[in-house]
């Protein structure tokens, strides 16, 4: 090898070295940027909100003054948010899981109908959340609620108004794609050998799905539920027309009552407050509580999933 070639190769290696190092640096920088932004947001919220959050703030009601930093409480909003997420989960998980079971276990994978259904689900995930709010108002409140009132109550107003159940139903439709996609992935990850083994023993398809496939897919299904809960706790637009209230003196007594909601309260405080500067601590306090609540809801689901995984792992030996 001549000296010239040797030098050229060294130069090339150095260039490559420099390139790879700078790419490495760029990826690290991008990550740092994200972490920095998150830290900035969290820091800002905690810095401005921590002083407002007290036991009285968290368990207190709204009756003594919603915009008074000394007297305002947000318990009704916490209650409403938890109730909404709870009802939403009850609605979305069964429907989403059953849809995913149909798509992976029953539908023909190649058929155009299956492809159309898949496309519809993906499109559903891309619809802006305010559209879901309008859909909820038109479909659940006016059509379903109105229908119930006409049929069972002779037109008297019981269901055809914004209510906790309609908000939960709307939120369930919004989070449906998340649950379906996560469940589908979980089901597809179950090896076919388990299905064949079960069917070869004379099990029906239903028995196979119920006793062999679903237990295996459970952690993945719960991941879907966790994502849905995270999304559902934070969205505001879908519940604005379907159940959330600006102010209520009482907690909702039934699923047909309206409710107050942390996210909607943040919207109220930042747009409807008589004095935005003076009520800012309440705003920050509410946001902080919303973040902590979302975190706790997620944590619960993660712990449940970890429990199931541990159980599965002992079964896996």
């Amino acid at each position: 090898m001549s000296l010239a070639v040797c030098l050229e190769m060294q130069l090339k290696a150095k260039q490559l070295d420099w390139r790879s190092a700078s790419f490495h640096g760029a990826t690290a920088l991008a990550t740092l940027l994200i972490v920095g932004i998150i830290a900035l947001i969290l820091g800002n919220i905690i810095w401005n909100g921590a002083a407002q959050v007290s036991l009285r703030f968290v368990v207190g009601g709204t009756t003594e003054g919603m915009f008074d930093t000394q007297k305002a409480g947000i318990f009704p909003m916490i209650f409403g948010t938890v109730a909404l997420v709870f009802l939403m989960t009850i609605a979305v998980v069964p429907v989403g899981v059953i849809t995913a079971i149909y798509l992976t276990e029953y539908a023909r994978h190649e058929s155009p109908i299956t492809r159309v259904i898949r496309g519809a689900i993906n499109n559903l995930a891309g619809v802006p959340s305010i559209v879901f709010g309008l859909f909820g108002l038109g479909f659940f409140v006016q059509f379903v609620g109105g229908g119930i009132d006409r049929f069972f109550y002779g037109g008297a107003l019981h269901y055809a108004k914004p209510a906790l159940i309609w908000a939960a139903a709307t939120m369930a439709v919004l989070t449906l794609p998340v649950v379906i996609v996560a469940t589908e992935e979980a089901l597809r990850a179950v090896p076919n050998g388990f299905r064949e083994g079960s069917l070869a023993l004379g099990a029906t398809k239903l028995e196979t799905i119920r006793k062999v496939v679903l237990p295996q897919a459970m952690p993945g299904i719960l991941t879907g539920a966790i994502l849905a809960v995270g999304r559902g706790a934070g969205e505001v637009a879908p519940i604005m027309f379907t159940g959330a209230a600006y102010y209520l003196a009482h907690l909702p007594k039934a699923a047909t009552d309206q409710f107050m909601h942390l996210g909607y309260h943040v919207f109220v405080l930042s747009t409807q407050s008589p004095d935005i500067e003076r009520t800012k601590p309440i705003l920050y306090g509410t946001v902080l509580v919303l973040l902590v609540l979302t975190f706790l809801l997620n944590l619960t689901a993660v712990l449940v999933r970890a429990g199931i995984r541990a159980k599965l792992r002992t079964a896996h030996g």
Binding site: P191, G193, G197, S198, A200, V212, L312
Partner: peptide, 28 residues
């Protein structure tokens, strides 16, 4: 279903269920 109860099958890749040894046999 009846046919498969009469005609059992063992696969190339052993596929015990992720259950206990006893439950694997109890399954069928």
């Amino acid at each position: 279903i009846e046919l498969r109860k009469r005609v059992g099958m063992v696969f190339q890749k052993s596929n015990p269920f992720p259950k206990s040894i006893a439950d694997n046999i109890a399954y069928g």
